[in-house]
Nucleic acid binder design. Structure first.
Lengths: 356, 356
DNA sequence: ATGAAAGCGCTAACAG
DNA sequence: CTGTTAGCGCTTTCAT
């Protein structure tokens, strides 16, 4: 009967004290064995590992975290988990985190700045770093967070906080060129949330490209970045139809296609639509959506890799902002079936083209 | 100059000791003020709150968690974050967790049992409870986990662990009836992963319903629960075509529709397809998918609510399994455009109907 | 290379 | 109602 301890005593596994006792060494030696290999005699270490394994010892991450702050947790604040845009971003983030031994704490803030701030407040004390995926907060709020924990923003760009984003400008430019090549002479931008950094960049890039290519550009919106938003956009568009539209994102584009179809338009014969992001579903909606594809998975992975690099470079202390790293990942235009030659003459399709 | 402390001293905010000192009370009183309101004189409490607020005191969740185990963290292990099935489940889970003051730690295990076990091992010591969403692990592995932390399985059902799942059997029955009513006389089931509990239930329910309604039933697969899996399913189906198929899930159904279309079939004229889950995209694929809708958001919400209830009922101690709660949420058949009357005579559509 | 001891910040008996 | 006193399990100087 080697085990005199009642098994009802310990609520959760053996501790370094138990292992130490069993090995006849000091607890600190056991601690070192696991957290600072090399700082302990090879043989002793081996023996300790052995015994620890037999006893089923597992370090308590909470206990480790208390004195060191190393929780191995990363927060990922997502604007809307329900938005397919984030699926692959999360997957990429997960994979990268897992490889580095980190676990993700993900918070869905449902496009609400308030919820975002609350989630952040709650998560920050528990995590080592934060990735803000499509934050709706102000730059200054983000800076406040970044002051407390290493932070990287995703799908946004800032001068003083590390960031990872798709190259929206180039993508937009390609989209405009594509439409121009098809003979369209004026463009409509179906805008997303005003608080969205990407929206600003996309619209501005559209205007510039349109200007250079001598196309007319207008902006409708803002619309919520959802299918419902797209349907609303379709209605707005129908009030003064054009021959093509570029949507803030695929969700709006898909909703817009549905909405316009319902209003009698044929896509792409009457109106060409291009989306942004190439989310799940962009390939099997009807017609298949021409869209500016962002490297979603890479975006997520790079964001946490960047974060982890900052962590490792010891950007733990307050104030030391660490080196700011900014990445712009390449996008590409996926030409599918929602864009076509501009119609020679417009066909009236909206029920009441002049508005109510 | 009330603040004599150098502001470079504290790495992270004031502690209960600081607040206590500032108030002239004992640290434990400050502690009580926040963790056990009511156990402290109203006035004292008020004063303490006041001062704490002024000092910007924030309880350190790690420190609280160490002695109590109350981390306010819940693990959600999902088979595949990239699968739209989980979008609304996560949303529901998030919302419910947030309302109860919990934060989710989500791990994507990419349909891998190994990854699932690793994620669980890593998460368990940090969380108060676990929800296993579509676990691929064996019942016994799940029991092992459930012994360590209150656990609820989602989209699966067990006798000794709380569970939340859609009523697959009824849903399947409705689907079969629907097809029978359209004149189909034999059914093909496009199977999902063998390790999937839902797959077993669905196939069995299909067989029973088919038997009762005097239809023939066969099973093809297993296929990965993805669009690619559906395309593979289409090919298998084409080797010996039928007039209709029920897929394990919407992803397979959508993939199958695309695959069959590519092989020359018209959906639904030549073959009717029904899916399962009503995921994002099921309504805008072509044709819109007839599917058995599961209350995704509720599923997620109920899972964490159940978990939290167990937590509150003090199922913290090892061994005490707490009351097992099992819920079967109602599903409903969404009749859309992928199902139609059985063809009077079959049209040959597969390029090589006899196989290779 | 290893041991002793002092915390990390908070909670929880147990007294008063 | 409030203060005292131990820890929770691990890390980390500082000695030895």
């Amino acid at each position: 009967m080697p085990d005199a301890d009642s098994d009802a005593t310990r609520r959760s596994g053996p501790t370094i004290y138990d292992v130490a006792a069993a090995c006849g060494v000091a607890p600190s030696t056991v601690s070192r064995t696991f957290s600072r290999p090399g700082r302990v005699n090879a043989e002793t270490a081996e023996r300790i590992r052995q015994v620890a394994a037999e006893m089923g010892y597992r370090a308590n991450p909470l206990a480790r975290a208390l004195p060191t702050g190393r929780t191995s947790l990363l927060a990922v604040i997502v604007a809307d988990v329900t938005n397919p845009f984030f699926f692959d971003i999360l997957r990429g983030a997960e994979t990268a985190a897992d490889e580095a031994g980190y676990t993700l704490l993900v918070a869905d803030v449902q496009e609400s700045v308030d919820a975002e701030r609350r989630a952040l407040d709650r998560a920050i004390p528990m995590v080592e770093g934060v990735v803000l995926a499509t934050s709706r907060m102000s730059d200054s709020s983000i800076r406040v967070a970044a002051k407390q924990r290493p932070t990287v923003v995703l799908n946004r760009s800032m001068t003083d906080v590390s960031s990872v984003a798709p190259d929206n400008a180039r993508g937009m430019r390609r989209a405009v060129e594509h439409l121009a090549a098809l003979g369209h002479t004026s463009l409509t931008y179906l805008a997303g949330p005003e608080a969205s950094w990407a929206d600003g960049v996309r619209w501005q890039a559209l205007r510039e490209a349109a200007y250079e290519l001598d196309l007319k550009a207008r902006r409708l919106g803002p619309f919520p970045p959802t299918q419902a938003g797209g349907i609303a956009a379709a209605q707005a568009f129908a009030r003064s139809p054009g021959t093509c539209a570029i949507a803030y994102n695929d969700l709006i584009a898909i909703g817009a296609m549905r909405g316009m179809t319902r209003l009698g338009a044929r896509i792409p014969q009457d109106v060409s639509i291009v989306g942004f992001d190439n989310i799940f579903g962009a390939d099997f909606c009807t017609p298949a959506l021409t869209t500016v594809a962002a490297p979603l998975r890479q975006l997520g992975a790079l964001a946490v890799e960047t974060l982890i690099r900052e962590l490792r470079s010891g950007a733990r202390r307050s104030g030391s902002p660490a080196r700011v790293r900014s990445a712009l990942l390449p996008t590409r235009l996926l030409e599918r079936d929602s864009t076509a030659l501009a119609p020679r003459r417009r066909r009236a399709w909206a029920a009441s083209p002049g508005g109510k």
